[in-house]
């Protein structure tokens, strides 16, 4: 089966300020040699702590950051090779829903103008057609027509996120990248937005790249999950096998750290000691070794490869599995 998005060996690096004028250039590999695929109509979630490279990977997929190495194929087209007008066409196929609905909407534009903005730059429609599209979008995300003329500050956080979602849908994109779409919202409103995202996915057969640090939300939303740590994918599996048999010690630590409400179901806490390693001077071995409760000598010298250790599609980067 062919995937809508196919990312192969993607690396994204940032230049770190030199120590002196003639010092050696050093780089921070925010994303280091990762691969993943998403099928049309499905959701891939990328999970990890802050600084693990989730957002960087997503930005590279939308060509908002330059990839250092690797290949990103969207719907059969190599999007890293695109330039100019062809790149603009790609932009209408990949849209973003941002984390913070307060800072991602222009406060001086009316709601209808915000939603119509992608149409103005990425499509060739008459203003009448655009108005119709905006009307349909408002309806699809559950906003009332009379709210079109309002400014962002007149909306609540959840409603603003609905505007952000309508804007992302405007160009009928192939892929929607949801970067922590609910973590800035109140709990009761989170459920409304998550339900809306799933409803839209069913209606329009949308494909989501869903970035989150909340494992509960990820379990609810995703079909496949990639767990990232320090720029590497450490575990990659479908939803069932990841949550039923989490195998990488980091995934286990993440899962056990989530406080559950059911006292009987509480997991044995795997506490991670210390902090992550310095991303500029990464250790030679497994990047998780310094905090790993079960690390052996080999973990500090050899970097584990991401490969299938159990059944078919469940990939793990760990020497001990």
């Amino acid at each position: 089966m062919t995937s809508l998005l196919d990312v192969q060996n993607l690396s994204v690096r940032f230049e770190v300020k030199r120590q002196s004028l003639f010092g050696k250039k050093s780089y921070l590999y925010a994303v280091d040699d990762i691969s993943f695929q998403i099928e049309r109509g499905k959701t891939l979630a990328i999970v990890g702590e802050s600084g693990s490279g989730k957002t960087t990977a997503a930005l590279a997929c939308a060509r908002l950051l330059d990839a250092h190495q690797g290949k990103i194929t969207l719907d059969g087209e190599n999007i890293l090779a695109k330039q100019g007008e062809a790149l603009r066409q790609i932009r209408s196929k990949v849209q973003f829903i941002f984390q913070d609905p307060y800072s991602s909407l222009n406060p001086r534009m009316r709601a209808e103008a915000i939603v119509a903005e992608p149409l103005n730059s990425l499509s060739h429609q008459t203003s009448k057609q655009k108005r119709e599209v905006v009307d349909q979008l408002f309806d699809a995300v559950g906003l009332r027509p009379e709210q079109k003329r309002l400014f962002p500050h007149q909306f609540s956080g959840g409603q603003r996120q609905r505007i952000g979602i309508a804007r992302a849908l405007a160009t009928k994109p192939e892929l929607i990248i949801c970067d922590e779409p609910v973590s800035a919202l109140d709990v009761a409103v989170q459920a409304q937005i998550l339900n809306l995202l799933r409803k839209l996915q069913r209606e329009f057969n949308l494909t989501y790249l869903f970035i989150s640090h909340d494992l509960g939300v990820v379990q609810h939303m995703s079909d496949n999950i990639a767990v990232m740590y320090m720029g590497k994918v450490v575990e990659y599996a479908d939803r069932q096998s990841l949550f039923q048999t989490p195998s990488h010690p980091y995934t286990n630590a993440l899962l056990s750290a989530v406080p559950g409400i059911d006292p009987g179901q509480r997991r044995q806490r795997v506490l991670l000691p210390g902090d992550p390693p310095d991303p500029v001077n990464l250790p030679a071995g497994c990047r998780f070794a310094s905090r790993c409760p079960i690390a052996v000598d080999q973990c500090f010298t050899d970097q584990p490869e991401l490969k299938a250790r159990q059944s078919g599609d469940h990939l793990i980067a760990c020497h001990l599995q």
Binding site: V187, A188, Q190, A191, L194, L215, G216, V217, Q219, H220, M221, R239, Q240, F243, Q244, L255, V258, G260, I261, D262, Q265
Partner: peptide, 14 residues
């Protein structure tokens, strides 16, 4: 009731 039910909680049986 709403506050408890509206949050997706992690479960092992899927």
């Amino acid at each position: 009731q709403g506050l408890i039910a509206c949050v997706p909680h992690i479960t092992a049986d899927l």
